[in-house]
Design a protein around this nucleic acid. Structure first.
Lengths: 242, 242
DNA sequence: TTCAGCCAAACTGTATTCAGTTCGATTGAC
DNA sequence: GTCAATCGAACTGAATACAGTTTGGCTGAA
């Protein structure tokens, strides 16, 4: 039963942010069920809860999600366009498979895209918000690296810092399409900011040193050098992952 | 009426390929309505039939498509994930706007991605099929350029040749994700292979000369040079578009 | 005249129902 | 014992019905 219906125990709809709290003058609206459903299924796929290549049964899934088939199908269609599931007419949805080569290719694509983001950020300048985020990330990384050895808490903090830094650069590039393209490369099991690359002290220091140099290059408008360095930086992640 | 319901006259479901014809041993299945609907709406948006920013009424649209709201909504959700329409809860779908800067950025993104495709193609080698397609495209381009002046037929042939050449390189890169990322940059009004860049004889010859050099570099495995040239090639398209 | 509040029409979100296809098991012939 | 045809259960595709939200206009008071 549980082997045939892995949909049965999905992650609870973790309230990403404490809703129902007024923010400014506006009350946060409740998300539609199809969005919530997509988020939960995406999470399940990214965490490897669904086996690659497995067929997704709409009835079982909608039962597990506690909604009808309509929003469930909407969610699956959205995930299909995101590239996480495949769709075939009259045969429904299957979990997309990502062979090792595809994961490695994703790093190449991400390197090209984030490299471009660096160049655009350097050309267009950093807004206060992004500059602050990058400087905060640099400080956080410095703090982590002061530890002789790195523990679990450091790992969590490091990931958050890393996401903040890369997101700030993407935001500074001011291109929604570029963000969407990068998201394509992150939305796969094994190629996420969240996922583990080497956490040896030396590797972490080298990567964080890249961040410092990237910040300098972007801040001083040296777009081409920033692009090249970011490419190298991301490719290095792939090397440390395999 | 027609101003409020631009959905009323949609392009007919142009049978992309003469269906119901056996191909090999298998009969081509009829496409589901949601796919057909998505194709028609995508075409309408790309050809500028829907005004950017306009709200899309599900009832009117499904009536124009001749199907119920269910497949219509599925199609719109898919287009939303493709980036052609925006979605807001309880407010439905709107046609996405692409300001000039977004179109120019798309060329930058495409340049980075197709450059990467060239490098991968050079590293991984050309299969017979792709090699044949590229050589055919080069011959077709040569034929067109023999004409002293270029007419409408030449323009049509040139576009087909151009698509064949670029698609062959993407296929040779052997990365589905890369294809999907490139598609993001093409699926926008004003930034399509199909769209017009300069058709002056000198510009066409220069672009076609790039193709010859790209083919040589890929065939001889000079990935880095191919990447750089392709980047320059695509950026040049942007320059000739504005 | 202007603006706040209210009301109804229109629209979107979801559930349910029905129709058509797929796929596996069973049966029978060879 | 093997393979093909057939039948039925299970599943997907689409339509319809219903519920909740938005939106624009109307009314009436300031």
């Amino acid at each position: 039963m549980s082997a045939q219906n892995p949909e049965q125990d999905l992650p609870e709809p973790r309230r990403a942010e404490p809703l129902d709290i007024e923010r400014g003058d506006e009350v946060e609206r409740t998300a539609p069920r199809s969005i919530s459903a997509a988020d939960r299924v995406r999470e399940s796929i990214l965490t490897g809860h669904f086996a690659p290549g497995a067929r997704i049964n709409e009835v079982h899934l909608s039962r597990a999600l506690g909604v009808s088939r309509t929003p469930t199908r909407a969610a699956l269609h959205a995930l299909a366009a995101e590239g996480l599931v495949d769709y075939a007419h009259n045969r429904g949805f299957t979990v997309r498979e990502f062979p090792l080569q595809a994961v490695l290719d994703a790093y190449q694509i991400r390197a090209a895209l984030e490299g471009l983001a660096c160049r655009l950020a350097a050309e267009r300048g950093l807004a206060d918000e992004q500059r602050a985020a990058m400087e905060q990330a640099l400080r956080d990384g410095d703090d982590i690296l002061r530890h002789e050895t790195l523990n679990e808490d450091d790992l969590v903090a490091y990931r958050a810092m890393n996401v903040m830094f890369h997101d700030a650069i993407l935001a500074a590039a001011q291109s929604r399409m570029l963000m969407e393209a990068v998201r394509l490369t992150l939305n796969m099991p094994g190629s996420t900011h969240r996922h583990i690359v080497s956490f040896k002290h030396d590797d972490v220091r080298r990567r964080h040193d890249d961040h410092h140099r990237l910040y300098q290059l972007i801040a001083t408008g040296e777009g081409w050098r920033a692009e090249v360095l970011m490419r190298e930086h991301v490719i290095g992640l792939a090397k440390q992952t395999v």
